[in-house]
């Protein structure tokens, strides 16, 4: 093998070793290159294989539940491990409900924090606040859960939930009874957890908007807020959408903190104060005690749902981002449309 290849490629080998004195022979070098290609390809393939394996295992393990309940699993509100009757609606509902609360609050607070950092704060404040935000993002979620359980929930119960439901309990959103743990508590804890992500991503997005664009707006005699509203936010739209989707993704998948504060009840209620469960928290709550095969399969099917939803959110995000970019609204100034051409930006 070695002999044949060295004989066959002799002229080539001589020429290349002549131009590259002291280097490895060409055959060896190209073998190294092949090995590199193979190694990187394998690593990349492993990622794909892992994703496929997860999908396959989830699908196979949830087969008993799928064949027993069919598509109705999605809309059944009944979850009874004793009678072995399972439906995912309470958890889909809980996930949507808490994610909505968390996303709305976290996007508002995160984007405003980022605006303060990039447009208002001076150098010193900027550094301290920027560091704090990154630090917040690194706190383990169980800490947020503890804080939610021992600080947020008692406070919410005494100062928000009880007074509101006593005065306006006829309004379904504020209906009692109040236990303490529930949708609002979970949504708030989630919001606090994802604010740093939203703030950090938004800050990058704002920082990437060229300073000259701000200058141009100010030079037309507008105030800071007018500049932010009419130039900065539109220019940052695509990137901010990315931040929102990241927030949604994190909120949907977050397990530990939510499990600690949501109240662990399989019920569908519109009340902010009602206890509930999300897709991830029901799995965390019940896996240890799911001894029946059907119960396990139902939990697996919820895992599969969560997996697919996450996939959909990510695909949707990409599609949205691509569409925004294609509308040429994010093309940076002077990105080089050909001179006098009928440029089709993007």
């Amino acid at each position: 093998m070695t002999k044949r290849s060295s004989a066959g490629s002799a002229p080539v080998a001589r020429r290349s070793s002549g131009s590259d004195p002291g280097g490895a022979p060409a055959a060896l070098r190209s073998r190294g290159d092949r090995a590199f290609r193979l190694a990187t390809m394998l690593a990349a393939a492993a990622v794909l294989a892992a994703a496929a394996a997860i999908a396959f295992v989830l699908l196979r393990a949830s087969a008993p539940a799928i064949s027993r309940f069919g598509p109705a699993f999605l809309v059944r509100a009944d979850w009874d491990p004793i009678r072995l009757s399972f439906g995912a609606l309470p958890f889909v509902w809980g996930t949507l409900y808490t994610t909505a609360i968390a996303t709305v609050l976290a996007v508002a607070a995160g984007v405003m924090t980022a605006l303060y950092l990039t447009e208002v704060a001076g150098g010193g404040t900027r550094a301290v606040l920027g560091f704090t935000i990154e630090f917040l993002a690194a706190i383990p979620s169980v800490i947020f859960g503890l804080w939610g359980l021992y600080v947020l929930i008692p406070w919410l119960r005494d100062h928000v939930a009880v007074p509101l439901s006593m005065r306006a309990g006829d309004f379904p959103l504020l209906a009692g009874p109040v236990y303490g743990p529930g949708m609002l508590a979970a949504g708030l804890v989630l919001a606090v957890m994802i604010v740093p992500t939203v703030a950090a991503v938004s800050r990058e997005v704002f920082a990437s908007v060229p300073e000259t664009l701000r200058d141009a707006a100010y030079a037309l005699g507008v105030t800071r807020w007018e500049m932010v509203r009419t130039v900065l936010l539109p220019a940052a739209k695509g990137g901010l959408l990315g931040a929102v989707v990241l927030a949604v993704g994190r909120a949907m998948g977050e397990t530990m903190a939510v499990t600690m504060v949501i109240g662990n009840a399989a019920a569908v209620s519109v009340s902010l104060f009602a206890p509930g469960n999300t897709m991830s928290s029901v799995i965390a709550n019940q896996f240890a005690e799911a001894t029946e095969r059907l119960h396990q399969a139902a939990l697996m099917e919820i895992g599969l749902l969560l997996f697919l939803t996450t996939l959909l959110v990510n695909l949707g995000a990409r599609w949205l981002a691509a569409r925004t970019a294609a509308r040429a609204m994010m093309v940076p100034p002077f990105a080089g449309a050909p001179e006098e051409g009928q440029a089709d930006a993007a």
Binding site: A216, P234, M329
Partner: peptide, 21 residues
């Protein structure tokens, strides 16, 4: 006021700065 000054004293920059609209 800077806003009023800049309305009367306009400025054009080195690189074109079209707004994303």
């Amino acid at each position: 006021e800077p806003t009023s000054l800049r309305r009367q004293v306009g400025m054009v920059f080195q690189r074109p700065t079209p707004f994303p609209m």
